[in-house]
Every structure is written in C-alpha cells, then in structure tokens.
Design a protein around this nucleic acid. Structure first.
Length: 577
RNA sequence: CGGGGCAUAGCUCAGUUUGGUAGAGCGCCUGCCUUGGGAGCAGGAGGCCGCACGUUCAAGUCGUGUUGCCCCGACCA
C-alpha cells in the first residue's frame, strides 16, 4: 500500500466529542468516524485491524473445534417470546416491525436463534458436542453509548455457543474456550487476565471475564500473585477480618448522639474507629411477585457489594430505600437505624458482623445509638452472608497473601448456561438408551471492536498508538525523507518490494510532504516499525529503523534491513503459537 | 431515565452580553519555494450560524418549541 492511495485522514486537532484516549486516537489517526451516537464507520486502517483480530479469534475457535456459521441479525419476535426474553430484555433491544406489523429485533445476542437451529437439526447424542460460532455485528440500544468504540450500540462480536449432552461435557467445552480465549488474547499481544465473574441475569453457575489490563478500564479486578486467584470485585470473595477476638461482651448501653448521623460523625463523637461501628442499610428489593424491604448490616468501614446482595436475595432489582420509607418502618432517620428491635423485616448480615462483640449501632430512635451491641445476643443472626465489596488491599480468600487490585476492560466473557434455553425452547436429543435429554449449553463472547479499542488503551504514548505487531494495520512504514530525491525513492521502492516478498506488510509513504508530517502520521497511526530513508544514513549505504513500541533506533545496511525486519515481525507473529 | 453542557467552514473555536451585509487558526485547491519531527510566500474554494415558529424595519445574536451530540449519575446478556 502507498500512503497516497490510502484513505486515512489524520487530524491535527482533537475532535471535541472524544474524551477517551482510544476514541481520540482512532479519530485522529483517521481510523473511525462517528455516524451517529454509538455507531461508527470503520475506515480502511481500522478495518484491517478488526480483520486481524477476527482472524486470530477465528483461528483459535477453529482450533478448539468451533464451526463458523452466519446467523441473522434481524430476528423474529416469536423466538424471543419463546425464551421469555422478548418481555424481559426491555429498552436495550432494538425492535422493529415489517410492513405487516410483525415484530422483529436486531440481535443483541443469539441464544434464541442458535437454539432454534440446534433443536431443529440436532436429535442424537451422536451429533454432540457441538461448538458453533459467528463473528458479526450486534445491536444494543445502550442507555448511554460512550467511550468511543468501548460502549457502542452497534459493535462486532464473536459469539460461540456450546452444546453438550451433560454437565461434564459442558465442563470440557468451557475449558476449551477458556484456553482458546487465553491463546487468542495472548496472540493479539495484549496483557490480560482471566477473572472469575458474576454470571448476572444470564444465569448459570460459572463465568469468567477476560480483562485487558489498562488504567482506564471500567472494571475493577483483584488477583493474587501467590495462588493465582483472580476475580472481578463484583464477584471476589471477601474473607472476614477478625478484629475483636477475645474481647468480652459488655452491657448494652444507649447513648445520646444528637445530630450524629454518618459513620464518620459517630466515630468522631464517640472517639472510636469505623471498624467498631455497624451500619444498617435498607434496600427495596424487587421480586417477580412483590417488593420487599430488606435490612443489611455491615461493618462501618466496609461497602456493600450490591451484586452479591442481589444474587443472595434472588431478586430482579435492588434500590436503596427512601428516607421516608425507612422512617415509616423503623421510626428513625437513616443515620440512627440499627438491627436491634427491628420487627417484621428480613435482616441480612455480612460475615464480619458475627465476629464482633462490642459494636455501635443505631438505636432506631433519632439522636440515639447503642454501644456494646453484641451480634447474636442483641439482634438475630438468621442470615449471614458475604455481602461486602473487597477492598484495595486485603488478604486473598484462598491463600492469605495480599490481593492486588487493577483496572480492566472486559473483552471476553464465558458462561455456563446449562439448560436455560434448551428447556425454554425444547432443544433435546436422544441418548444411547433412547431417552430424551435436554442439551446443556454454554455461551462465549469476544468483543472484537472493543478489543481494538482496548489494545489502544493499553498501548499508546503522547505521539499516538503503539500497535502490537499481530494486530497492526501494517507492520512497517517506509518513510523517505524526500520522496522527490531519486536515490531515496529508488531505495524506498526496493525495500518496499523486498518486504512484500518476504511476507511483511509494508506501506510506503510516497507523499511529497515534508519529513515531519510523515513522521507525525506514522507515530499517530502506530505502525510497529518505521524505516527512514534519508541522506544521513544513505551515504553509508544504510537506513534507519525505529521500533514504535520500544522506541529503539537501529541503523542497518540496505541489503540487510528486509531480512532483519522479516525476522522481527515473524518472531512476534508466531512466537506464541 | 435524572442532572449539566454544547450546536457557526472539513477540524478547533471567536462572534451572542448591547440585534445592523459571516470571522480566525489549522485543513483543502492552484502556483512558487522547501524537504530529518505537523515549514514559508502568493492566490483561491468552502457557511440555510442544527431545525421550526415567533418578536423586529432588521435575528448567528432575543423568545418559544424541537432535534442531535457530549459529559456526570443511574443502568449495563
């Protein structure tokens, strides 16, 4: 490719709409343009990158035994009504009607479609296991698209669905995918971590997320260097901290605490630490059939993990209760509520609560607290559960070593689905005994367009992007300082052709612009290697090579540079396989 | 969905307070010159000032409505 023939309109200034680094750089590098909120057009450079990511993913899916299919984007409402999700999916689903007013949606995911295919075509245990996947656009009407390609309404996703005859088979498929995902992200040249994840509303009992580690990541994960435990903080187990071991219980004491509402105020007023306070939060939990007020008790210095709470309760939605409702129920304002004497309300306590013997709690009367509350003695411990968010620094729940916290971008997510869809939609097979059995399913997604953005979030500097070789739009850019100079031009063409011959993807900057312009664009777009052809090195029969990733500069003989670059590129492309 | 902000040239933004013939820098086109980190000179093209209605002799500017976009929050198989 020659730069004069490429469409890569680079921008000197940062478009006002972009905040996130990957978004800004892709706009500036002439890779993407916004079509409407959450919908982008991919220009040639981005398209090449996406295809490279997709190719790696495709190879790994195939290697794991996956079969590629092409599923429809436009899907009939009937299938979604069968699974029950037409009603549940809500505003996030793009819906449309045809001229006969029949309902359709644009696929946000493809469980229904694929289950429909499999129930029609698979009838025997001999046809299982089956791994089917596609790489395709997905549509979700996000409430708030943002961060450029990170959260779009239209995006590219690889989704694979596994079909097995039983749980043991699912476990095998799941492991295959876990390994394939690890391999795929490694080959993309990304630093990532697989973490245990909450399986959310999709159900199932096991789930891992693949996180590209980057400071700008939305997700918080913790991991242990010692034993390898890693989890999203939404999921991470919290090990209870023993603080008041051996302490003798005291007599419950009601103290006047006028206007002292928050944990901080309580600790200051009483001269104690937040660890000695128990706070009580009231949630309104929405179940399928009813709404219920729930009290949750947790140590004053801890935070509730609402994901854990929601899972524990098995409710659809959680919301902190309003002050009015709290007052009506307990007779006290939120700052003075506590578990003692609460009647007719389900009380959940965090695992650390029973370990305390002298706690300060609200007295359910404004301007009063209790001291020396003894959990179990002064209020019931009927429901004890891990309900707290793990902190930045705390011991690993498995080995006790210190956990490390980091930010990540979710680029892959694998789930065990079980029989949720096969039972709803009747996907069954006959086993050896002629018995009808439900197919056991798993689903596995990789955000392809998001992976492109995540790669940038992890690899950039003040001058632009630093693509890993495996997913770079081209491996090498050749920059003659002056393309009008005949000698430089001749060398440039020779190297260009030489690189193509040895399988290195080269692009020649044949523009008549000044060198500075070409250097700036090369850095911005982020080609891994740049060959500079200029008078300085040329007089020694050499050219300069700069590595974008490490910043290293090399001077190489003209005759040697092609092979040298071929070695560099190929070792990075195939080093992992 | 709640809160905030923005909308003028391809991009970044002035101009709106106090109504009076549309501006700058960058980019783009032509020519000259130049070529090692976004050069210089000369000339040029490019705007329903988001849209609609209203006030006014006169609206980019004032009023009402509307649409789109961005940010924060809630939400996120």
């Amino acid at each position: 490719m020659r730069v004069t023939q490429l469409l890569a309109p680079t921008l000197r200034e940062v478009p006002a709409e972009a905040e996130v680094i990957s978004h800004r750089l892709m706009l500036r590098a002439g890779m993407i343009r916004k079509t409407t909120s959450g919908v982008y057009t991919y220009l040639p450079l981005a398209q090449r990158i996406l295809q490279k990511i997709a190719a790696i993913v495709r190879e790994e899916m195939n290697r794991a035994g996956g079969l590629e299919v092409g599923l429809p984007i436009m899907q009939p409402a009937e299938l979604w009504q069968e699974s029950g999700r037409w009603a549940v999916y809500g505003d996030e689903m793009f819906r449309l009607q045809d001229r006969h007013q029949r309902d359709f949606c644009l696929g946000p995911t493809h469980e229904e479609i694929i289950t429909d295919l499999v129930r029609n075509e698979v009838h025997s245990y001999k046809q299982l296991p089956l791994l089917l996947y596609q790489i395709q656009n997905k549509y979700r009407d996000e409430r708030r698209p943002r961060f450029g390609l990170m959260r779009c309404r239209e995006f590219i996703m690889k989704d694979l669905y596994s079909f097995d005859r039983d749980e043991a088979g699912l476990e095998v498929s799941y492991q295959k995918m876990y390994n394939a995902y690890s391999q795929a992200f490694q080959r993309c040249g990304l630093q990532f971590r697989a973490v245990e994840a909450d399986s959310g509303a999709i159900g199932g009992n096991a789930s891992h997320e693949f996180m590209v580690l980057a400071g700008s990541g939305e997700a918080l994960v913790v991991h242990c260097d010692q034993c390898g435990y890693a989890a999203n903080v939404e999921k991470a187990e919290a090990s209870p901290e023993l603080l008041q071991e051996g302490l003798e219980p005291g007599a419950l004491q009601r103290v006047h605490t006028p206007g002292v509402c928050t944990v901080v105020e309580v600790t200051t007023f009483l001269g104690i630490s937040a660890q000695e306070v128990l706070k009580t939060l009231f949630y309104e939990a929405e179940f399928t059939t009813h709404r219920e007020l729930i009290a949750v008790v947790i140590r004053g210095d801890r935070n509730i993990n609402e994901t854990k709470l929601l899972n524990r309760l098995g409710c659809l939605r959680l919301e902190l209760a309003s002050d009015t409702l709290i007052k009506k129920t307990t007779g006290a304002s939120p700052g003075f509520v506590g578990p003692i004497g609460l009647k007719g309300i389900r009380i959940l306590v965090d695992t650390e609560v029973p370990l305390m013997v002298q706690a300060v709690v609200g007295a359910n009367q404004d301007d009063y607290h209790y001291r020396y509350a003894d959990p179990g003695r002064d209020f019931p411990l009927d429901e004890v559960a891990d309900l707290r968010m793990v902190e930045a620094v705390e011991p690993c729940p498995h080995c006790g070593n210190s956990l490390v916290q980091s930010h990540g971008i979710e680029v892959g997510h694998i789930f065990k689905l079980g029989t949720k869809y096969s039972s709803a939609m009747g996907a069954r097979f006959l086993d050896e005994k002629g018995q009808e059995q439900l197919i056991v399913m798993g689903c596995y997604g990789i955000g392809v367009s998001r992976t492109m953005a995540a790669a940038i979030e992890q690899n950039y500097d003040a001058n632009g992007i630093k693509w890993p070789v495996a997913i770079a739009p081209y491996h090498v850019i050749i920059v003659p300082v002056s393309f009008q100079d005949e000698q430089q031009r001749t060398v440039a063409e020779k190297l260009y052709n030489g690189l193509l011959k040895v399988g290195v993807e080269a692009i020649l900057d044949d523009r008549l612009d000044r060198a500075g312009v070409k250097f700036k664009d090369a850095d911005l777009i982020g080609y891994p290697y740049r060959i500079t052809i200029g008078p300085k090195a040329l007089k020694d029969g050499e050219v300069e090579v700069r590595c974008r990733i490490t910043g290293e500069d090399f001077r190489l003989k003209i005759e040697e540079v092609v092979q040298w670059l071929a070695d560099q590129v190929h070792s990075q492309l195939h080093g992992f396989v």
